[in-house]
Nucleic acid binder design. Structure first.
Lengths: 234, 234
DNA sequence: TAGTGGTCTAGACCACTAT
DNA sequence: TAGTGGTCTAGACCACTAG
């Protein structure tokens, strides 16, 4: 547990973290001077450890009283892909690949992926089902340079899992959402009437500095409501 | 500028902030030891000041090299109201109040506002225009207890400005978005054909621990695309 | 009054970077 | 080699809270 080579403030921090995780908000953490004695370190070292946990939102200090487990912060929506999102809603996510091939980027996709026109991209079109019924139709474009051998390695169910395993989990996304009516082609695939309401969702997903995914998805409006949490509390 | 009573680490922090705001990312900040000499304080005090600016995202440290102005972080979408949002898009926001009165909360509104059924709420319905043409129809419900005299004080153009002036600027919002077709009543007000595509946007806006606004807005899909930025970088 | 967190000092050694 | 940030010590005084 306690690695002798670990930095002292890290040792103290992780000791306190293990003590308080799971404790109810408002539970007291050890006092700084108690930790000074327990670890035989200077108080500044303990403060450095506690500071990190306070910044992280795990603890809060109350001057004159002590340090306590903080009420969990509300956090903005996590960036999720389809599979994760449907699982969160208690639905079974399935996908049927309609198209998966190497293409040359057109002007729109090239700009969105921060590439040059004609650069190699992976175009992946899927009909995605939730509890066996059509939910959406997704066209994803990926930068092939970032995903060598992706098409050959057998397509995964979850793109975001595949990205995560390559260290490309998106940390930032720019989404646009609009309402429209299904085209006849879309309607046929989604098993709705032509002209039925659909939600169009475009995403530009970024990992670090790299644009890893650009996608356009059309959702059946009768089956899908988009939820977004904004802001950062406390 | 420098208040003699101010804490030393605050003095140092604000001195550094004033030096580097406006500087290009990558510009060097003063070294810690330079600030030690300039202010005649201990190095830990300088580090406390710099730590705050690093946490804030203004500076970044590079071990062995120095401290530099950080690349501005991408931040998740700010929680904005209609007026702000339209101004950001370069459109002139105008509103026409269709209804503004005290009501008793129904079950849905009461639950959303964390009130009891029958509690007093303010119901404010507006037809909102952008560049003189109808953009959306908004029904906002406000907790009257939090906004004493709101109805009597003359309705503002921007609800969010009014909330901000009372210290109730939302810091957290839960939005849901869906696609639909306009009802005949909505179509008439929005000046579109009945059955035209619309985007329905519901919001529950929270300031601190209090739910300050619950609203349902129906946007003309031909005029409005919702943009959302998610995640927190660096 | 005893304990808490908030602030601050005046040093120290280390690994790393740049010249 | 000189300078940087990273870590750490062993104290100190303060304002505040609680018993």
């Amino acid at each position: 547990m306690t690695d002798g080579r670990a930095l002292k403030h890290v040792q103290v921090r992780e000791y306190v973290r293990s003590l308080v995780t799971g404790c109810a908000p408002g539970s007291p953490a050890p006092s700084e001077r108690e930790l000074v004695h327990r670890f035989g370190v200077a108080r500044m070292t303990v403060r450095q450890a506690m500071d990190a946990l306070v910044v992280e939102g795990l603890l809060e200090r109350i001057p004159g009283r002590g340090t306590f487990v903080a009420r969990p912060r509300r956090t903005a929506s996590k960036i999720t892909g389809y599979t994760e999102e449907m699982n969160r809603r208690g639905l079974l996510a399935e996908s049927q690949t309609l198209l998966a091939r190497r293409e040359q980027a057109g002007p729109g996709v090239a700009r969105a992926l921060s590439l040059s026109e004609g650069d190699a991209v992976i175009h992946w079109r899927r009909l995605r089902r939730a509890d066996a019924k059509p939910m959406c139709l997704e066209d994803a474009y990926l930068n092939e340079v970032l995903l060598p051998g992706f098409l050959q390695s057998g397509m995964p169910t979850s793109l975001y899992d595949a990205l995560e395993s390559r260290g490309l989990r998106p940390t930032w996304a720019e989404d646009s959402i609009t309402a429209d009516k299904a085209t006849t082609e879309e309607a046929a695939l989604l098993e709705v009437e032509a002209g039925a309401s659909v939600l169009r969702h475009s995403r530009r997903a970024i990992a670090g500095e790299k644009v890893v995914e650009v996608s356009r998805t059309v959702y059946r409006a009768d089956r899908f409501t988009l939820w977004v949490q904004l802001g950062q509390e406390s």
